[in-house]
Simulated assay, not measured.
Amino acid sequence: MNKDRFLAFTDAIVAIIMTIMVLEVKIPVGPTFKSLSQEAPYFLAFIVSFMIICSAWYYHHYLFAHSKLISRKIYWVNCIWLLSMAFFPVATGWVSEFPLKREPGYFYFGIYIIWAILFYVLNRMTEKFNRGGNSSKGLELVKTNTTNYGLDAGLFLLGAVGIYFWAPMALLVTVLHALSWNLHGN
Rank of each mutant, 00 (worst) to 15 (best):
M1N: 06
K3V: 06
K3W: 04
D4M: 11
R5P: 01
F6R: 00
F6Y: 02
L7S: 06
T10P: 02
A12N: 03
I13M: 09
I13Q: 08
A15R: 09
I17K: 05
M18T: 13
V22A: 09
E24G: 03
V25G: 03
V25K: 01
K26Y: 04
P28T: 14
V29D: 13
V29H: 12
G30I: 09
K34N: 11
S35N: 13
S37T: 14
Q38Y: 14
E39Q: 13
F43Q: 05
A45I: 05
F46N: 06
I47E: 00
I47A: 12
C54R: 02
S55W: 04
S55Y: 07
S55P: 07
A56H: 11
A56P: 00
A56V: 14
L63D: 07
L63R: 06
L63K: 05
F64P: 01
S67K: 02
L69P: 00
I70D: 03
K73N: 11
I74M: 08
W76V: 13
N78H: 06
N78R: 00
C79L: 15
I80V: 15
W81N: 08
L82Y: 00
L82P: 00
L83Q: 04
A86Y: 04
A86S: 15
P89N: 02
V95T: 08
P99C: 04
P99G: 09
P99S: 09
L100I: 07
E103I: 15
P104Y: 02
Y106C: 01
Y106E: 02
F109C: 03
I111W: 05
I111H: 04
Y112S: 02
W115V: 02
A116M: 12
I117W: 10
V121F: 05
L122K: 01
T126D: 01
T126M: 08
K128W: 13
F129I: 15
F129Q: 11
F129A: 15
N130V: 11
G132D: 07
G132I: 10
N134T: 13
N134R: 15
K137N: 11
L139K: 06
L141Y: 07
V142W: 02
V142G: 05
K143Y: 07
T144I: 15
T144F: 10
T144S: 14
T144N: 11
N145H: 11
N145R: 10
N145Q: 15
T146M: 09
T146G: 04
N148F: 04
N148W: 03
N148R: 12
Y149L: 12
L151I: 12
L151Q: 02
A153H: 07
A153T: 10
G154Y: 00
F156G: 02
L157W: 00
L157C: 13
I163N: 04
Y164P: 02
F165L: 14
W166Q: 07
A167P: 15
A167Q: 14
P168K: 02
P168D: 14
M169V: 11
A170P: 07
A170H: 01
L172S: 09
V175H: 03
V175C: 08
L176T: 04
W181M: 06
N182M: 13
L183V: 13
L183M: 14
L183S: 01
G185V: 10
G185C: 10
N186W: 14
N186A: 11
